[in-house]
């Protein structure tokens, strides 16, 4: 099946050795002093485990950069603290292009609503190079709950429960805002990520849940759960029949998007080289097919536009949360 049938032990020793080298190389590689970028391996830490959408996107971008610029861009999983661990690593790296990272908007715009001030990651520590793509949230209801639209919530005879993918996530914010703006009595049940929340929804343990489209779409298409609304600025290409929250009369817009960041003060020519290579990658058929397959909507805007959007979102979320008295950090 696979290209090689090498002995596990041999393969692993290679993996162990290679990764170990990648780990100690971070001061040596990448720098732009000689003008040519990259001059060595460029590390791309990602604040999520292997296999999730953040990881997959990083790997796809890494492949593209490697093809456009030459050199290698190893993706390194540094899971933890909603991505804050990886972010801290990038923020502290030499600003010479030897460490770059695709990061999530939620870490900067939503997580601060849930955690203490000293744990907040600030976008000011980074230069944003290029927007990547958007990953929409969808509110789904279990079959047993009988809900098919937001209007049905009014008829509920008890508190509606909603599963979220964790504290300080966009999924939690989207659901919390929906029920608060709609003035529906509801209770948040946080799960550790999308898969357990989906399982609970399938088993009718919770009435509704907010998930990323990619996590829910298979079961939506199989008719096992009912999509109620999406939270993007417009409908999602992959769920054309599902109205946006705005269309349903709720002033709620929450989206997760990802963008390329470098440590603050990275030379402009390095930033430009990365942005150009990424734009070239976005043009390839392979990359477009990847987006399609993972239900990602392109958001290939410039770094400045990303920052503007991020600032706007951060302010908007903070205002909304304040207006409705929502405390993301208190689900008990």
């Amino acid at each position: 099946m696979r290209k090689h049938l090498s002995l596990g032990a041999v393969a692993t020793f290679a993996v162990v050795a290679l990764t170990a080298c990648g780990g100690v190389q971070n001061t040596a590689g990448g720098g732009s002093d000689s003008g040519e970028y990259p001059s060595g391996a460029v590390e791309m830490p990602v604040g999520a485990s292997a296999g999730g959408s953040s990881d997959l996107i990083s790997r796809q971008v890494s492949q593209g950069l490697s093809a456009e610029l030459g050199g290698s861009f190893p993706v390194i999983n540094r899971e933890g603290a909603n991505g804050a661990l990886a972010a801290a690593e990038v923020a502290q790296a030499e600003p010479d292009g030897s460490m770059i990272s695709v990061q999530n908007a939620s870490l900067f715009a939503i997580t601060p609503l849930a955690v203490g001030e000293d744990e907040v990651t600030s976008i000011d520590d980074f230069d944003v190079v290029q927007g990547v793509s958007r990953d929409d949230y969808v509110l789904v209801a279990s079959k047993g709950s009988g809900f098919t639209s937001i209007d049905d919530f009014a008829g509920a005879d008890k508190k509606i429960t909603y599963g979220t993918t964790g504290v300080g996530t966009g999924a939690q914010l989207a659901c919390a805002l929906t029920f608060n703006v709609n003035e529906t009595p509801a209770e948040a049940i946080p799960f550790d990520g999308g898969a357990p929340a989906l399982t609970a929804l399938l088993g009718d343990q919770v009435d509704t849940a907010c998930l990323q489209v990619g996590e829910a779409i298979e079961n939506i298409e199989a008719g096992k759960i009912t999509p109620i609304t999406v939270f993007g600025p417009e409908r999602v290409e992959f769920l054309p029949d599902v109205p946006t929250a705005q269309e349903s009369g709720l002033d709620v817009e929450v989206a997760q998007y990802r963008f390329m960041t470098v440590p603050k003060g990275t030379p402009q020519d390095v930033q430009d080289a990365i942005a150009e290579a990424m734009q070239a990658t976005f043009e390839t058929e392979e990359y477009q097919a990847f987006n399609e397959q993972n239900n990602l909507t392109p958001m290939e805007i410039s770094g400045d536009e990303v920052v503007a959007q991020l600032e706007e979102d951060t302010q908007r979320y903070a205002d909304l949360v304040e207006e409705y008295g929502i405390d993301l950090g208190d689900a008990s």
């Binding site: 661990l85 849930a114 744990e119």
Partner: peptide, 20 residues
């Protein structure tokens, strides 16, 4: 680690490493 319901820190000694 960070409490997954309230995101309050428990026994993390203010280190990012222990937060998860």
């Amino acid at each position: 680690g960070s409490d997954s319901f309230s995101s309050a820190d428990r026994f993390t000694f203010n280190t990012l490493e222990l937060q998860s």
